[in-house]
Amino acid sequence: MYAGKFVFSQLMDLAPWHTFRRLVSKYKGDFNARTFRCRDQFLCMAFAQLTYRRSLRDIEGCLLAQPSKLYHMGIRGRISRSNLADANESRDWRIYAEFAQSLISTARRLYADEDLELDLAGTVYALDSTTIRLCLSLFPWADYRETKAAVKIHTLLDLRGAIPAFMLVSDGLLHDVNILDLFSPERAAFYVMDRAYVDFERLFTINQAGAFFVTRAKKPLKFKSVSSQPVDKSTGLICDQQIRLTVYYSRKAYPKLLRRVRLKDPETGKTLIFLTNNFEITAQTVCDLYRSRWQVELFFKWIKQHLRINQFFGRSENAVKCQIWIAVATYLLVVIARKQFGIPLSLHSMLQILSITPFENIPLNQLLMDPGLAEEDACAAKQLKLL
């Protein structure tokens, strides 16, 4: 006899389904859908993410092996490989993109008090992108190079909790710097970026919005030194200058002063040059801010290893975007569960447990609160803090 909710259902209950229904209505996602609705598609694809399914046939076989439990998981539609394929091809991917954005808002509120490990009061964002390479003959819409195809995931990561504050899925041709035009800078926030985002006109827009940026300078950078501050050279710092750009078009695009911090990395011996528009923080903090950008690289590495976004269940642009956004939404639900239930495990350990217990009736917080697991997990915690 059925008693209590399945682990999978408890996790899905954390989702704001009223928002999901509104988005389905907004984009007419269930128009002419008789036996397999958007919610069924989301639940099946989320199940595939949690349990590491490899194909639509794999999803179908695994779920149909437990027919008496599907109703209690929230799946009301008729599961078949063709229904899943048709849904991924035809249901508007924006439903799942905006649903993921609503989960992002929830997760960021929960992690707003996380320790940033930097002596800063404002929010710190790391901006970067990752490329997922595809076969050109199978994904001809995903332009990248003459003989290759790819999609890019552009992410603005809030470093308090490693929550993506902004995400965009594009083809491989969209240059990283264009992402700076797609979001409004938050006043007093720090935006940490690599050299691909150095465009002085766009950086000046961030400055005019009252926000700060930290990036690496491209070579060669032509400038005139206006003033210089003393630095502690024992830390690897070489100089801390206020500069003015001297090239006509660069100076026209960014007419104000910039701060230039030069560092010789003690570990690698490489000389790094950072640019920022903040003149109040210390030179060492500028270096630490740029070092924190590595969090977004770890985030990309983690989602590629633990979410199904390297192997796609459909070949159309809509199917690929549906799968990516549902994967992001599933990741966020696990992130939210971790905070709401006060679970001491890392996300990696949580996903390993969830992958083999979706049909169990045990309460979610009881399943994931084993002190022995938490102790073992703490020994292997030298990775991205949240993950």
Rank of each mutant, 00 (worst) to 15 (best):
D128K: 05
F166D: 07
K218C: 05
S129M: 05
F183P: 03
V124Q: 10
R133S: 15
F166S: 15
P185E: 13
D171E: 10
H175V: 13
A121M: 02
L156E: 00
S137G: 07
E146A: 15
M167R: 13
I132F: 00
R145S: 12
S184W: 02
L173M: 15
F200P: 05
D199V: 07
V177G: 10
L157I: 04
L203C: 11
D158Q: 05
A162Q: 10
G172N: 08
M167G: 08
L203M: 11
A162D: 06
F139V: 06
V177C: 11
A188R: 13
R160S: 10
L168F: 03
A149E: 07
R187S: 13
V214F: 00
L127F: 03
F166R: 15
P185A: 12
E146L: 15
T155K: 05
F212V: 06
I163N: 07
H154L: 03
L174S: 14
Y125P: 01
L134K: 02
L203Q: 05
S184D: 13
Y144F: 11
T123S: 12
L136P: 00
A149P: 01
G122T: 10
T205A: 15
Y144A: 09
L157N: 08
D176G: 03
F166V: 15
V169I: 14
T147L: 10
A150P: 00
I179P: 00
K222T: 15
A142F: 00
A150H: 02
F212C: 09
